[in-house]
Design a protein around this nucleic acid. Structure first.
Length: 282
DNA sequence: AAAGTTTTCAACCGCACCGAT
DNA sequence: TATCGGTGCGGTTGAAAACTT
């Protein structure tokens, strides 16, 4: 069977998404959902194929995505899950709320795999020099099958789980950590209070401030600062948070940085201000 | 400071799967 | 049953950033 290409190559944009494209996609999905990815870009007015839109939404724009570095707990969970599931990234992602399969795949290839190789090397060296210790462990604990499949009952990891040192990762391969994990994770699931996201903005990270203020694109503006806001139901931009109690709002530049959180998406915005008395709120 | 190299990660590609017809 | 369209998945790529020489 010859399949039609997923999209017309001609005239469709590829490569990195712009903030404007993000805004269009988010706005469309908020209003209409994403029942048909193939039809979505045309209806939304995006020069992208449906696949590209889906990927952008799933991996980046989706409101429930957790941004930022992986915690040690998450990294350990990935290691354990990979031990059990192999390269089934979507299955692994399903156990880590807010993380995407792509992100997990990347962190595995860039960090965790290398770390495990190093640890295994270190481990094998240790075993060569301390055989008596190994014998003692195997006498008192897991069966052979548990050794070969150590992570089969170790998820999900709780945020409270202590796993801050390298040796705990190593311990997983001996089966030692699993019982500990089982005990700690009994009946525990992360509960996300969706309501709390409504107009609750994450803190603006420091890099945004410095990036915004050093941006060449904004050199023509007289006074700059940043705030946060979102598109309301009437498709109008609304500021919810600004460093100034009194700000003469002239416009916003969502090219600076658009992000999202919870059930809403929001923008770190670049404000141009006028007037003489501006009182920082923080 | 410049050039070269390595690392990171967003995005793409091709294939498999599934439901509808 | 065969075909088709839509979606999801895992592997791969390549541009940009970070690091080294």
């Amino acid at each position: 069977m010859v399949r039609a290409p997923c999209c017309e190559k001609m005239g469709l944009k590829r490569g990195p998404w712009t903030a404007e494209e993000d805004r269009i996609l988010i706005s469309y999905i908020h209003k209409h959902g994403h029942a048909n990815w193939r039809a979505l870009p045309k209806q939304a007015g995006l020069l992208r194929c449906g696949k590209s839109c889906r990927l952008r939404w799933i991996n980046y724009l989706r409101p429930d995505i957790k941004r930022g570095n992986f915690t040690k707990e998450e990294e350990e969970a990935i290691i354990n899950l990979h031990e059990t599931l192999g390269n089934r990234w979507s299955a692994i992602a399903a156990k880590l709320p807010g993380r995407t399969d792509n992100e997990i795949k990347n962190v595995w290839h860039t960090h965790l795999k290398k770390r495990l190789i190093k640890q295994n090397q270190a481990n094998s060296n240790t075993k060569k020099h301390s055989k008596s210790t190994i014998i003692t462990k195997s006498e008192s604990s897991p069966s052979e099958s548990e050794f070969t499949n150590p992570a089969s009952n170790s998820l999900p990891m709780s945020p409270q789980q202590s796993s801050s040192d390298v040796s705990s990762v190593t311990a997983v391969t001996t089966g030692e950590t699993n019982d500990h994990m089982k005990e700690e994770n009994k009946g525990e699931h992360e509960v996300v209070d969706i309501d709390s996201f409504e107009i609750s903005f994450p803190a603006i990270d420091e890099s945004f401030w410095s990036d915004a203020l050093s941006s060449d694109d904004n050199s023509s503006l007289s006074t700059l600062d940043v705030g946060q806001g979102m598109i309301n139901n009437d498709d109008q931009f609304q500021i919810y948070q600004s460093p100034f109690s009194s700000v003469d709002f002239m416009g916003y530049d969502y090219n600076a940085k658009s992000e999202h959180d919870g059930m809403d998406f929001w923008y770190n915005i670049l404000l141009t201000t006028e007037g003489e008395s501006m009182v920082p709120l923080f």
